[in-house]
Design a protein around this nucleic acid. Structure first.
Length: 478
RNA sequence: GGCCUCGUGGCGGAGUGGUGACGCAGAGGACUGCAAAUCCUUGCACCCGAGUUCGAUUCUCGGCGAGGCCUCCA
């Protein structure tokens, strides 16, 4: 395709922007680190989900929907999950009515379901594959990559060793530190982590650790145990995308150690020069100017924004949250605030509402496309969209183009539904009000207007240009 | 201590070696019985210092400031 838009992406590996060239344009492959399912997802989790959803839409637009594979995992094995299961089901486990594994499964199922409903409300497309870590611990019937096989290969190739009841990755490997630009030897001075004596190098990390009988575990060549934190992404990316793929994404904080370790594991296990060609990282989210943390009391969950009145004293529609997120470039830090959400809502209210949220027949606006092609400049894209919205008011082609362009960002405003009974009655109420106005009964007319507004219907008075008669129209107030 | 980001008007936020992007909010106006919506007009900026340059917000160096990672974290 000669007319394919040139997509440029910032690559953390090279700390620079470069044209994106897929390994195989017929099968463009992207992996994004998904949630560890032990608690409600917060807006910090929402950012990569939204950002890489835009990238997914962009890739599908450029290369074709069937030509893009997007994998986002669910990590359902983690000591935080175990702790949560004990907290929530400890009594049941003690009473013998629930096993630990059952309790863990309940925690992960509930949290994963919540996550899915949250991100659906944010207007994100489901990924092509959403593998769960627990299904990739042991060797699989279908022959896809698994964690134990990867660890075996790492040991066989001399990159991992057993010590102190653990299997550890040997970070003396020469490629270690390329992504995060770290030299581990130089970091010893201020390192806060105590050096375990059984490690060959202080930075060596766990691939496999033994479980006590009370802890969840899987049988392995090294005894019953559970995987370390990083190996699941190496396994699941290889399982669906192969040993080398195009794009790997996640939050800034994952650069070290998570992604650095993933690279080390995958490259050493497979003997490859690269794990993913492009590494992309989104910036952090702050809340009202402060770091979000449970101790600060400003921990904001997606669910809390959508369904409760804990932030700014009201609920927020998913599309408002999404637009608010896209009003800042993905690599910049973002300050999540009530003011920002209000601005996003105002902007959205000015855009023409389509029923479908689908691209429809229109062509994507060149300015929107160019903005997104430039390392996902969603800010410029939103502003191009805003300009397009002005034209769309009395230009059907522009309106169609707006829908197609907005769909690429995933922010297509949908019409708000009102009850049919209300809608059917509006015209007669307007007539009644017009007669009151003729009689100069302004108080009565204004009351009607206020009552309708309370029901979500905004009246707008205008003049018929020919006759000078008052003409009242209405729209659904979003 | 080491390694990374970043610093633009009230707020958000692009961009560029050489005439104030833009959006939101504000102010003024048109329209209106009053609103809402819409339209028009308008004020406000590039952290500090040095260097390179005819010229720097844009490049280089230094400083100051903010944030992140080095420990679970998106």
């Amino acid at each position: 395709m000669a007319d394919r838009p040139a997509l440029t992406l910032y690559n953390t590996l090279t700390r620079s922007k470069a044209p994106f060239v897929p390994i195989d344009a017929e099968n463009v492959r992207m992996y994004v680190c998904g949630p560890t399912v032990y608690d409600f997802a917060h807006i910090g989790n929402a950012r990569p989900v939204i950002v890489f959803d835009v990238l997914y839409r962009m890739l599908r637009h450029v290369y074709g929907e069937a030509q893009v594979t997007y994998v986002r995992n669910i990590t359902d094995v983690d000591d935080k999950i175990n702790a949560r299961a004990l907290r929530d089901f400890g009594k049941d486990i003690d009473a013998g009515t629930v096993t630990l594994n059952e309790a863990i499964r309940r925690v992960t199922e509930k949290t994963a379901n919540q996550f899915h409903s949250d991100v659906a409300a944010l207007g994100t497309l489901p990924p092509t594959h959403e593998p769960r870590a627990t299904e990739f611990v042991q060797k699989r019937q279908d022959g896809r990559a698994d964690m134990i096989t990867l660890i075996e290969r790492l040991i066989a190739r001399g990159h991992a060793y057993q010590a102190g009841g653990e299997v550890l990755f040997d970070t003396s490997w020469s490629g270690y530190g390329e992504l995060s630009k770290r030299n581990l030897d130089e970091q010893q001075a201020g390192a806060r982590v105590a050096v375990d004596s059984h490690k060959k190098n202080p930075g060596d990390f766990v691939l496999w650790k033994l479980s006590s009988p009370e802890e969840p575990g899987w049988d392995s060549p090294w005894g019953r145990g559970r995987p370390g934190w990083h190996i699941e992404c190496s396994a699941m990316s290889a399982a669906y995308l192969g040993e080398t793929f195009d794009i790997h994404g996640g939050g800034l904080d994952l650069i070290f150690p998570h992604h650095e370790n993933e690279i080390a594991q995958s490259r050493c296990a497979h003997g490859t020069k690269v794990m993913a060609n492009v590494w992309m990282h989104n910036g952090f989210v702050q809340v009202e100017g402060r770091k979000m943390s449970k101790s600060e009391g400003n921990f904001v969950t997606i669910h809390g924004l959508l369904a409760t009145e804990t932030f700014g004293g009201r609920k927020w529609p998913g599309e408002v949250l999404r637009l608010a997120m896209l009003m800042t470039h993905y690599r910049e830090p973002i300050d999540f605030s009530v003011k920002r959400l209000e601005e996003a809502e105002r902007l959205l209210a000015k855009w023409p509402a389509g029923n479908t949220g689908e691209a429809g027949e229109g062509t994507v606006d060149p300015a929107v496309l160019a903005a997104l092609a430039d390392d996902l400049n969603t800010v410029a894209a939103v502003q191009a969209l805003h300009a397009l919205a002005h034209k769309a008011a009395n230009d059907p082609a522009a309106a169609a183009s707006f829908q197609a362009s907005a769909a690429l960002l995933g922010v297509s405003p949908k019409k708000v539904e009102i009850s049919e009974a209300l809608e059917a009655g509006v015209d007669s109420i307007i007539q009644l009000r017009l007669e009151m106005l003729k009689a100069k009964n302004f108080a009565g007319a204004d009351k009607i207007r206020d009552d309708l507004l309370a029901k979500g219907i905004q009246l707008k008075d205008g003049k018929d240009p020919a006759t000078g008669e008052r003409v009242t129209t209405w729209e659904v107030k979003r």
